Amino acid sequence: GSPGIQSFLPPGWEMRIAPNGRPFFIDHNTKTTTWEDPRLK
């Protein structure tokens, strides 16, 4: 199987799917959430 997208996120980050189907990202380091992919910064 191919590695999940989770493995490509920075340490402490998690990806979830919102009720509307959009992915969002949780930064457990700062306890914040964002719509922006942290890998694109």
Rank of each mutant, 00 (worst) to 15 (best):
E36G: 04
H28D: 04
N29H: 08
Q6H: 13
P38I: 04
R39Q: 06
M15G: 02
T30H: 07
Q6M: 07
P38Q: 02
I26Q: 02
E14H: 03
M15T: 04
N20I: 02
K31D: 14
I5P: 14
E14L: 01
K41R: 06
S7T: 14
G21M: 04
G12T: 01
F8K: 15
I26V: 09
D37S: 04
K41Q: 15
S7C: 13
F24Y: 14
T33Q: 13
T34M: 05
N20T: 08
S7Y: 11
N29Q: 08
T30F: 05
T33Y: 14
P23Y: 09
W13S: 00
G21Y: 01
L40E: 15
F8T: 15
S2D: 14
H28L: 08
F24L: 11
F8I: 15
I17K: 08
P23F: 09
N20G: 10
P19F: 09
W35R: 03
E36A: 08
W13R: 00
P38M: 03
G21R: 03
N29R: 06
D37F: 07
K41F: 15
N29Y: 08
K41S: 15
P10T: 02
F24M: 10
I26S: 01
F25V: 00
P3D: 13
D37W: 09
R22Q: 10
F25S: 00
E14A: 05
A18S: 11
Q6T: 14
T30S: 10
T33P: 03
F25N: 00
L40I: 12
W35N: 05
L9K: 01
E36K: 07
R16W: 06
F24V: 08
E36D: 11
E14D: 06
P19L: 10
W13G: 00
S7E: 14
H28M: 07
R16K: 13
R16S: 09
P3N: 12
S2I: 12
F24K: 03
Q6S: 13
D27N: 09
P11H: 11
P23T: 08
D27S: 02
F8P: 15
D27K: 01
